[in-house]
Structures are given as C-alpha cells and as structure tokens.
Amino acid sequence: MDFLRPASWEEALAAKAEHPTAVPIAGGTDVMVEINFDHRRPEYLLDLNRIGDLGEWEVGEKTVRLGASVPYTKIMEHLRGELPGLALASHTVASPQIRNRGGVGGNLGTASPAGDAHPALLSSGCEVEVESAARGVRMIPIDEFYLGVKRNALQADELIRAVHLPKADGPQQFSKVGTRNAMVIAVCAFGIALHPETRTVRTGIGSAAPTPVRAKEAEAFLAAALEEGGFWENGKIITPSVAKQFADLCSAACNPIDDVRGTASYRRHAVGIMARRTLGWAWESYRGQSARTEGVA
C-alpha cells in the first residue's frame, strides 16, 4: 500500500490520473473501517486532508458550494438556514466524533444506499462537481449520480470536489429510522424539500432500494394536488387523504430488501410514515412562514 499526500487539488487530480485505483480518503469514516477489518487493501490511499478548499463552503446568491470534505458538524452549525434538509440529515450521522470527520464527499464516493446525506441531496436537487486532470470539471446532476449498490457516476480518474446545492426556498425535513436512538445506520430514511418558487416538491429515500431514490410519482402527485387545491396560496392544512396518497406513493417508490437491519415490508411501511410526518412538519412550517409574510405585508 502506498500513501499519497497531495498538497493541492491539482496534485490530487494528477495522482488520481496516474493511479486510477487509488482510494481517496478524507474523513476516513468508511475507508478506515474497511482497512481495519481487512475488507479492503487498496494499492494506494489518496489523502485529501491537505487540500484546504475541500473543507470550505461558499454561500452564493442562489446556491451553496459545499466542499466535499466540509464536516457534518459544520453543516449543522453553519448551514442550517441555507440547507435545512442537509443540516437535519447531518445531525443524524453516526456520532459527534464521526460528524467531526465525515463529509458529503464521502457519502457520495461510497454511494451506499444507507448514506445519510443522500435523501437530503436528492430532495434539494443539487449538482456534484467532479473533476479529472484529463477532462476538467464535470457537473453531475444528483439524479444521475447513483448508478447501483455502492456504484456512482464517477470515472476512475475523477475526484469529487464539491456539491452545489440550491439554497432552500422553502421548508425541508429529514427523518431516519434506526433501531437505536443515536449512532445508528439507517434502516431507512426520508428527505423532503418544498420548493415554493417552482411550486414543486422533491423527495429522497435512503436504504430502501439499491440506490438512494426519489419518489417521483409522489412528488408529481403532491405538486398537482397542491396546485389544484390552491394550497401554495391559501396555506391551508393539507387534507389527510392527500397526505396519505403521498405517503403511499413514497412507500411504493421503495424497492427494499430484508436484511439484518430490517425487513423490506417494514421499510416500505416506515418510509410511508416518515413521508407523511415530514410533509406535515414541512407544510406547517411553510404555513407559518407564509402567515408571517402576509402579516408583514
């Protein structure tokens, strides 16, 4: 095993180009487990800790450019306003120690369906900035990023540099089921983002299909129901039948398996409950916001 320690992003890309099998390591929270337990013996480890800008973020007018290694703790502490869904998801990641090391780049690189960030990333509609020495920067829409169980759209010579997330234009929620009250891998997870500007709703489901997925039918159904009922304007409580239909469609979007962490049918069931609850919380928050806005006007 060789340990590569590039001092800059350019050096990192060059190293990855020269050694396409090199395994990038940043927070180490996935890679080191595999090494400690003898599940993996990469020829090269490519340390990204020295590249300062991976740990930084910029808040722009419309988007946040989030460095791949910004630790979850920082997202929770500093980006709750701009990225509420991701901040909530970050808070459910493992333990404080892990949140201090791990970042979104690791979740994306590993592309495990159980990664906690995925539902929030999917529901935000972000883009992943990847780069190679040979072909330069490529922006991958999150919807095209996950290809299979622990497989993503990254080429062998590419590294994940940042994620570009639209700043929240409405309430976002995240919820995750585990069989313990802290430090637990998701049995399944659900993220929702209301986008009042476009009058759309986006979702993300974790651990209930071979890849993180969106419940697109549920999103379309809900958007139509909200539009039709004038909910965006009148801010009324979403009717239980609409919420139920949304929840059922979210359950239907799952394609889960039975494993040691839970059964397929439980996962489907729980995703439905989480969909209904998180929609309720997000919508309550939207109603609260619009009520305040009206009051001011």
Partner: peptide, 14 residues
Amino acid sequence: RQLPGGLSNTTHGE
C-alpha cells in the same frame, strides 16, 4: 433527543 427515534427526528410526538 427525548423521543423515540432520538436524533433521527422520526417523531415530534406523533
């Protein structure tokens, strides 16, 4: 933190 599900934010009392 004091509810079932804990930090995973699964219920606000529901």
